[in-house]
Every structure is written in structure tokens, then in C-alpha cells.
Amino acid sequence: MTQFLQEVNDRINGVPIQRCFHCRKCTAGCPLATEMEFNPNKVIRMVQMGMKDEVLNSSTIWLCASCETCVTRCPNDVDIARMMDTLRQMSIEKGLSVPQKKILALHNAFLTSIKMFGRINEPIMLAHYKLLSKDYFSDLAMGLGMFLKGKITPFGPRTRNMAAVRKIFKETKHS
């Protein structure tokens, strides 16, 4: 049980989350709390209690929008936003089935675009996202609107030194 808490703290590499005294200020200000399965302070408690499977499989960690309101307001400087990042990363590294598949699909499509072009190529990134998420029909009008206004194009400038970009991806890849 302590192992999970220890691992999360090590990876956050800042204030240990045991500092939380559950005042719930983080949850009170969290714009996504109403959509979450567990409130942010509850996730902290669950990590403290070693509830690894419940936490890493929860939709909460994927719904966090990284707005950083929680850590900004926490009286104990507990970095909840960083904890959410950490928990997402642990869930990916363990190959767990992510409950918010579309959110992860978007992240993956986004990163693939950087790996290919060094920058985001919107039309290709969105097409890739649709394939990964199997969400084929939403937002076609929005994408078409942006396309017609000349905002998004598949021919934008790319990074020249792609070897450097690929090296970054390769050497930061977790084993």
C-alpha cells in the first residue's frame, strides 16, 4: 500500500501528498469536479490508501484539464495537477485500458503529428484522431468552417531538423 504512495511522490518530486489535510479547497475550485468520478482531494486520499487500481482506472485522471487552479490554491502546496499528470503517465506505462479513450486518442494523434512534422498539422492530426477514436462524425462542420476560412491547411511549414525531433521522442520514450 505504501509503495504506490511512494512511487507517486517520487515522480512528483515535490511536496509529498501526505501534506494534504483534506480542506477540499482544490475540489471547490476545480472546473471539472462535477464531471469527475472522484473529486481531486478524494484521489489524493485514495493514493494515500494505496488504492492503485481504482485510481489508475478512473476517468478522473483523464478529465483533469490541467488548469492548475488546485495547486495554485492549495494551502499546503500539494501539486495536484502534477499528480494527475503522473497518474495518467503511470496508467499508460502499465498499458491499462483507459476509460476516456477519446481523450487519450487525441493526445496520441497530436504527438504523432509532432513526430512526423515537428509541428501540428491540423487536418492530418484530426483525421488520425478520428481513426484512433472511431469518432467519425462529430465536428465535421467546425473543421470544414476552419478549412474554408483558410485557417487550417495540410501544407503548413514543418521543422527542418527532424532528426533532432525524432531523437527527443526516442530518448524520452519510457521502457
Partner: peptide
Amino acid sequence: DWACCGATAAHSTNFKLSVALPAR
């Protein structure tokens, strides 16, 4: 010859990547 900062996609999924991309 700038590259993308990695945005939410990088810091949500891979901490080191999220630092290395802007670092370049």
C-alpha cells in the same frame, strides 16, 4: 526551425518529452 512545445498531449503522457521538446 522551431518545433511544437508538446502542449497538453506531452505533459499528460510523458514528463520528459514535455520538458525536452520546449528545451530544444
